[in-house]
Design a protein around this nucleic acid. Structure first.
Lengths: 184, 184, 184, 184
DNA sequence: CATGAATGAGCTTTCATTCAT
DNA sequence: CATGAATGAAAGCTCATTCAT
C-alpha cells in the first residue's frame, strides 16, 4: 500500500488542482483532498508546509513555462508574425494540466491574488500584453491583446453549456485569439 | 443616528457587494460586513435569512435587467445591427453597481455557480449568446460572441495594471465587444 | 441556564487562571476551560479574541495594582521604612487571586515572557527592585531585594510539601521578605 | 561527517536542555530539536524512546549529583557550619549545565512536575530543606532555608535586566544563600 | 429593529509517535 | 544509525447561524 518516492506528492498536486479548479480554493478543504487520496490530512503536511504552498507549487510549473516563453519573446522583434507565434506557443503551454491551472487562476481571482506567487503570475500576464501590443496603441487594441489571452483561458468555460468537443473548442479559441492580435 | 426604513438593508447590499467583489464570497465573512456597517452580525439576519440570500438579492437586480434585455431581444430579428444594439444596451446595464456585480460573478465562478440564482445567471448568459450568434455559425464565431460579453465584464480587470481612466476603458471595451459580433 | 451579563466572562477568567497556574499555560487547552464551565469553545471566543487575550486580561488586573503601588512609591523617599512599607503593600496585593497570578508568572516564565503584557510585567518587577535597593548597593544586596519579592511569590510553593496553613505561610513569607530588605 | 559513538545522543541532550530552558518544555517540539542538529525526528527516537525520556535523562544527571550530596549530608551533624558547606557544595553542582537544568526546573514547574523523575526531584529538594533547617524551627526559618536554595536557582534570572557578569552574580548568590541559613 | 450570547461544525495546522527500509 | 513517509489526536480559531430579550 506504500507509494513510490514522491508519488504521493504528485498525487496531492493533481487532486488539489482538480478540486481547486472545480470548487475554488477556499471551498476546498485539506480534508477533502486527503480523503480523495485515502491518506490523512497530516500526510499532506508532510509534503507541503501549508495549503498555500500546494498552490504555490502548482504556480511554479506555470511560472517556469511562462518564463521560458517570455525569454523567447525577448529575443524577438514584436511583429504581427512573432506576436501570433507567441500566442500559438502560449496556447500550447496551456494544454493539459495548464488549462485547469489557468481556469483556476481566472475564476478564483480574489483568492489567487493573495496567494504566494499570485502577484507574480499577474505580473507575467502584464508582460505578455506588453509583447503583444505596442504601448502607444489605441485603447481598444490594448484590450484586444489582453482578451486574446483570455480567449484561450476562457473559451472552454464560455462554451461549457454547448456539447462541443473540448479540443475543437481549444482550436477555435486559438483562431479567435490570433484574430485579436493587432495587424500592425 | 437612526436610519430610514430599509436604509440598512441597502447598506448591507452595498457593502456586501463591495467586499464580495474585492475579496471573494468565501473570504468575506458576515462579521466583516457587520463591522464595516457598525452593526452586529445578528442585525444582518434581521434583513436577510442567510449569507446566500444577500447574494441572491444582488443577483435579482441583475436578473431583472437581464430579463428586460432578453425581453426586448425576443422582439428583434437577429441582425448585425440589432445584435450590436443588444451589446450596447448590455454595456449600459453593467455600468455602476452592475459592473462590480459582474466582476464578482466572473471572478468567483466556483462560488457563484452553487449559489441560489447562480445557475440562473449562467443560463441567461447562454441566452445572450444565442441571440448574438447563429446556432450554426462557425465555432470561432460562437466563441467570439461570448468573448464579446466577457470583454465588457473583464476589460477593467484586464487593464488594472495600467493607469487608464475607468470610463475610457469601459468605452473602449464596448468598441472591442462590438467588433467581436459577427458581421452577418 | 443563561447567565448575568458578563458573568461568563468572569468565570472564564477565574477558571483559566486556576488552570494556567495549576497546569501551565501551554498544557491548558481552551477545550478544558470550556468543559469546566460547560460552555463550548466558541463561547470563549465570544468573550476573548484569543487564548493569549485571556491571559492579557488577567495581567491587566495585576498591572493596575502594580502601577498604583509604583505610583505611591514615586512619592516616597527610599528609606528602609518606606521600603518595608512597599513590601507590606505588595504582600497585600498578592493575596487572593493575585497569588495564583504570580505563581503562574513565576512558574511559567518562558510562556509568560512571550505573552502580550508579559514583558511589561517583567519591567514592573525591575522597577520594584529599583525602589527597594540603591543602584550602587552591593551585588548581594541587589539580589536580596529581588529575592525579597520572590519570597512572597514562592513561599507557598516552597512549603507545599509541608502541612502548614496557607495564611501562616504567607505571614511568615512577609517576615522573610522584610528581613531581606537592606537595613540602609 | 560521522559522529563518535553516542555523540549524537549527547548532542540531543545538549540542544534539548538549551531549548527547554529557553522556551519551555511544551513549546519546544522534537522537530525543532532535530532541525537544530540537522537530523530527522526519527533519529531522536533512535536515541530516546519518548520526548519525556530526553528530559528524564537530563534529570538523571542532576539526580545523581543531588544523591551524592545527600549521601554526604547523611554523614554530617546538621550544624551551621555543615549546612553552609552543604550550600557551597550545592552551588558548585549547579554551575555549568546544571544551572540551565535548574532554571528549566524552576521556570517550568507545571510541566516538570508531571514528568518522569520530576516528582523525584521535588522530593530531593525537600530533603535538602530538611538538612538545612530543623523541623521545629520557626516558619520564617523554614522558608529562609528554602529561599536559600532558590537564590542559587533564580539569582541569574532575577538580575537578567542588569548588565552584571554571570559569574559575579553566581558568587553573590552564594553569599545571599549562605546568609539565609539559620545561624543555629 | 437590533443586540448579546452562544453553538455546532468545520477549518488549518502542529505534535509526538511509529515503522518499514 | 538513521531516514522517509505517514498517522491519530488534538490544538487554536473562524464561521454561519439561532434565539431570547
Amino acid at each position: 500500500m506504500t507509494r513510490r518516492r514522491s508519488d504521493t506528492r504528485e498525487q496531492i498536486r493533481r487532486v488539489a488542482l482538480e478540486l481547486f479548479a472545480e470548487q475554488g480554493y477556499e471551498k476546498t478543504s485539506l480534508r477533502e483532498i486527503a480523503e480523495r487520496l485515502e491518506v490523512t490530512k497530516a500526510a499532506l503536511y508532510y509534503h507541503f508546509k501549508t495549503k498555500e504552498d500546494i498552490v504555490a507549487s502548482l504556480f511554479e510549473d506555470f511560472h517556469a513555462e511562462a518564463e521560458e516563453l517570455l525569454e523567447w519573446s525577448r529575443g524577438q522583434e514584436p511583429t504581427p508574425a512573432s506576436r501570433r507565434e507567441f500566442v500559438r506557443r502560449y496556447a500550447e503551454i496551456i494544454q493539459g494540466p495548464g488549462r485547469e491551472m489557468l481556469r483556476f487562476m481566472q475564476q478564483n481571482e480574489p483568492a489567487v491574488r493573495d496567494l504566494k506567487g499570485g502577484a507574480d503570475l499577474r505580473a507575467r500576464m502584464q508582460l505578455f500584453a506588453e509583447f503583444l501590443v505596442d504601448k502607444d496603441s489605441s485603447l481598444p487594441d490594448q484590450i484586444r491583446a489582453r482578451m486574446s489571452i483570455f480567449s484561450l483561458h476562457l473559451a472552454h468555460f464560455a462554451m461549457r453549456d454547448t456539447a462541443v468537443d473540448e479540443d475543437e473548442v481549444q482550436a477555435a479559441a486559438l483562431q479567435v485569439a490570433l484574430d485579436l492580435i493587432p495587424e500592425d
